[in-house]
Design a protein around this nucleic acid. Structure first.
Lengths: 207, 207
DNA sequence: GACTTTAGACCGACCAGTCGGTCTGGAGGC
DNA sequence: GCCTCCAGACCGACTGGTCGGTCTAAAGTC
């Protein structure tokens, strides 16, 4: 923060660095204690910053939370898209997406906690946000399912409901892992889960 | 309660009645505004009672919430068991349970909201409670799946993971209904959902 | 020396929980 | 039958603490 002759650690300094430190600290604190359990003072302390600094960089507690969620979602969506782009065939894409999601959450527990748990049931503003995220992911899944139907890879079904069912399934498996630690590693559930999901739409596993 | 000359409307009066009124009001308020969004004063007002009365009947805000959740869970578990007992064959039982759960939540939106949404991410004490509920339901599903395997109705699979997957799926469909109102009525998703779930374990629909 | 960034004391709203007190109905004495 | 007394249900003003957000003064930066 203050004096600074270049040190080994590439000098986490400057405006952007502080902002980042606060963001990281917020991720940690929120994921550990939940939104309401986390005081702004906690975050500030964890970031070795001050309240003034916090409110200089972010307009409110709620907004930093949203900023966090958005950052995560964008990152998750992007890496998933990339993984999907590598694959040919709707079912292979679905499968690749599942892998990516699992790997991402597996590496970043706190992310997972924030996205899947901490944000729920906090009131209107939050619900709406989470809802639109769910809708967005569901729409993505649905579009690939629709493609699979068009391809003839699977019989026609209610792809929208199926999308939500799949999301719920994945969600629950990850939440269970967050709380109970099973399976360890999380990826251990991948094969079984993929088979369950694919069978639910009458597709044979494409591994 | 106390004396009782049989009346038509059992006179909403006396200690037990007040307790009940508070409990009902709490259900309503919690489901609408979430746990943290609900002040004890709100509940008291909705129940036409006083703060003193509230704390006479319940030790704390947290405890009334738990009391509520427990009441709901017990009721849900009981009616589900009953429905199950009527059926022969593991798969038929599963199907009956699904029906009951859907019907129950469909009739009692606020219950659903409390159980599936309001209680999440509120801190350790809450998480533990919710977790044990999830575990309990998952165990129930698992045991019936195991039975189905033993019966030879379905091929052997990881029944524990499957149980969680199913729970997550059901959960998500209901949550979607809570927030978006689709499908209306909720029961409209039953057939598709049942088929998805049963297919996921390679069982043919048993309607 | 102007402008940006940081520090942390401070403010005010909010709210769970408390406490002194009221009210009602019934038990028991007479 | 009437009066006294008590338990315990109920009331709501109040308190103590917490926490989101503000503000001023100073340090850092260019």
């Amino acid at each position: 923060m203050e004096v600074r002759e270049s040190q080994v650690e590439p000098a986490p300094e400057g405006k952007e660095a502080t902002r980042q430190r606060i963001l990281d600290a917020a991720t940690e604190v929120f994921s550990e204690k939940g939104y309401h359990g986390s005081a702004v003072d906690d975050i500030v302390k964890a970031a070795s910053a001050s309240k003034g600094s916090f409110y200089f960089h972010f307009p409110s507690k709620q907004e930093i939370f949203f900023a966090l969620v958005d950052r995560l979602i964008v990152a998750l969506a992007r890496s998933t898209e990339e993984a999907i782009a590598q694959e040919r065939g709707a079912l292979a894409k679905v499968s690749a997406a599942l892998d990516t999601v699992f790997r991402t959450f597996s590496r970043h527990r706190s992310l997972a906690k924030i996205l899947l748990v901490s944000g729920v049931g906090l009131g209107k503003a939050f619900d709406e946000r989470l809802l639109s995220i769910h809708a967005r992911f569901a729409a993505a899944i649905k579009s690939h399912l629709d493609e699979a139907v068009a391809e003839g890879s699977i019989p026609p079904i209610d792809t929208e409901l199926t999308a939500y069912v799949w999301m719920g399934a994945v969600n629950e498996v990850i939440v269970r892992w967050l709380y109970t630690g099973k399976p360890e590693p999380l990826e251990g559930a991948l094969d079984t889960l993929r088979e369950l999901l694919l069978r639910s739409i009458r597709a044979e596993s494409q591994r």
